[in-house]
Structures are given as C-alpha cells and as structure tokens.
C-alpha cells in the first residue's frame, strides 16, 4: 500500500514539473505585461533541441543548456516582433506555436523513436533510502528540485526585491514606469526571454525525463495548460504551484485509469486534463473582480514611447 502511494506521488511530481516550469516562466513574462501564447511552440523546440544535443554530446547538462537557449531564442523572435516592431501579441504567440511545431519536427526528424539518454536521478545518499520519504522527497532528478527553487526564487523576486517591484510596475502601467525612467522595453525583453528559457527547460524535462524520447508534438497541449495555469493562479506563485500539481495529478490520473483496464475508452479519458483546464478557467474567471484585481493591467498591450 505504502509502495503504491509512493509511486503515485512520484508519478504526480513527474507529471507536474513541466507544467510548473513553463508556467513560472510565463508568470514572469505576464507580470511584465507580455502575453506570450507561444509556450507550446517554445516547449517543443526546447524538447527537441535538448534531446538532440544530449544525444550528440552525451551530456545531459549540455542538452539542458541548449534547450534553455533554444526556448529563449524562440522568445527572442517573439520579443523582436511584439516589443520592437509592436506586432499584436496574441497573433505573434500563435505564430510562434505554429512555427515551433514545424521547426521541432524538422529538427527531430531523424530522432523519432530513437531511445534516448535519461536524466540521472540524484538519489541523495542516505536520505533517499528512507522508506516512503526517501523516494518521494529525495529520489528525483535535478530539474524537479530546480523547478521548486525557481518558483520560490520567482516569488521572492516578484514581491521582495526592488527589481521585482519595477517589473510589476512595467506590467501594471507601462506608461507610468516609462515616465519614471525605467526601460520598459528592455525589462520586457528580459522577462520574455526568461519565460522562453523556462519553456525550453520544461520541454527538455519532457524529452529527457518524463518520457525520454522525441516524438512529434510530444508536448501535447501542456504549453497551453501552463498558460491557463497562470490565469488559474491569478498571477500568484503559490497558486501556480497548487495548479501545476492539481493538473499533474489529473494527467497522471488519466494515464492511471487507462492502465487499469476499466472499460472506459482511453481516448475519452485522455480528454480529462483538457476538460479540467476549461472547468478550472471557468471557476476562476467567473469572479471578474478577482481577475481584474490580479491581472497585470498592461497585459498584452504594445508599448511605444512616442515622446
């Protein structure tokens, strides 16, 4: 029984991590007022780049860095278009996802079905041998610990640091932040690139740890779910954690039910996370006041200093 619960928790942690990584990145971008709908595309490009680089070099560390750079590179395309050339953020984000789908399947065309290297589990000595707590808390790969470190770091940065205050100011009123002399566009570039890097990291977690391989479109909507999570969390880091683990749980559940052999068609069970996303969005958004109070006021708007 204990063994079952242990493996359940370990699986949920694994399913939640990519969501939390990607959503943390998007949170920072949105807090700076940038709505990047290209998370799915950035994750795909991160996943394939990380996989290919790890395969070629044999080093998962290099693979992870390459994935972060690839995600950030995708975000750079988005930033140039929306921040410098003032294109519509919604349309550009969509373009980024469409491009990412095609580009990732091109990059990975010779790697489909290739058995991949896997990110090693840290297995912290002594601690990881403790029954139950060992595997649940101390037996994971580095990215899982990193996802928590980054989320906590993000929360501290946003609400306890001066730079975080400026970032939030840029997201809430770019005109006021500009008038105070803050470099709105530069800050937004930084926030968007961070978001891209995190999406790349989320992607490489998928292709090196969650299901160590490359398959076309393997992110399967997780980028979009991460976007929904930011709304669900009402742009607050703690609730981002709750949401990511809630959805990780639902994703695991839909896999688990399929494995049980219950006579429920597996295709319909696979729809659970998407249905859950809609349900959660509805529950959160119906409180218009809460959304209005927490949503960065300049979210999605272009900024051009006319002066």
């Amino acid at each position: 029984m204990i063994f079952l619960i242990t493996s359940l928790l370990v699986s949920i942690i694994a399913a939640s991590t990519p969501l939390m990584l990607a959503a943390t990145g998007e949170l920072i971008a949105e807090k700076a007022g940038v709505l990047n709908l290209g998370v799915e595309g950035m994750m795909l490009v991160g996943a394939v780049t990380g996989f290919v680089v790890t395969h070629l070099t044999g080093s998962t560390t290099l693979g992870i860095f390459a994935a972060i750079l690839a995600g950030a590179g995708m975000a750079l395309i988005f930033s140039v278009l929306t921040l410098t050339v003032l294109a519509n953020q919604i349309a550009t984000g969509l373009a980024l996802t469409l491009f990412g789908k095609g580009f990732s399947s091109l990059l990975g065309r010779n790697y489909v079905g290739v058995a991949g290297p896997t990110l090693p589990k840290l297995d912290i000595p002594v601690l990881s041998t403790i029954p139950f707590f060992g595997p649940v808390l101390f037996g994971h790969d580095a990215l899982i610990y990193l996802s928590f470190a980054i989320l906590i770091g993000t929360a501290w940065f946003l609400y306890r640091s001066h730079a975080g205050l400026i970032l939030r100011a840029v997201g809430d009123s770019h005109a006021a932040a500009h008038a105070l002399g803050y470099p709105v566009i530069r800050i937004r570039y930084a926030a968007t690139l961070f978001g891209g890097g995190m999406a790349g990291l989320a992607g490489v977690y998928m292709s090196l740890s969650y299901s160590p391989m490359w398959a076309e479109d393997m992110v399967a909507g997780r980028g979009w779910i991460a976007l929904a999570l930011v709304v669900f969390a009402a742009w607050r880091p703690f609730w981002l954690f709750v949401g990511a683990y809630l959805f990780g749980g639902i994703m695991y559940l839909s896999l688990y039910v399929q494995g049980l052999g219950i006579p429920v068609p597996s295709a319909l069970v696979s729809a659970l996370p998407y249905l859950g996303t809609i349900l959660v969005l509805v529950l959160i958004s119906r409180d218009r006041r809460r959304i209005r109070m927490n949503q960065p006021a300049s979210l999605g708007q272009s900024f051009h200093a006319t002066a």
């Binding site: 349309a91 399947s105 091109l106």
Partner: peptide
C-alpha cells in the same frame, strides 16, 4: 520532411505581423 509547410506558414505570419 513536409514539416517545411508548417515552417513556411509560421515564418510567413512572423513577417506579416512584423
């Protein structure tokens, strides 16, 4: 690979928006 189609379409939208 016919993923070239997706790339062409994505780039087209990038340039168009730009």
């Amino acid at each position: 690979p016919n993923a070239v189609t997706g790339i062409f379409q994505g780039i087209l939208l990038f340039f168009l928006l730009g």
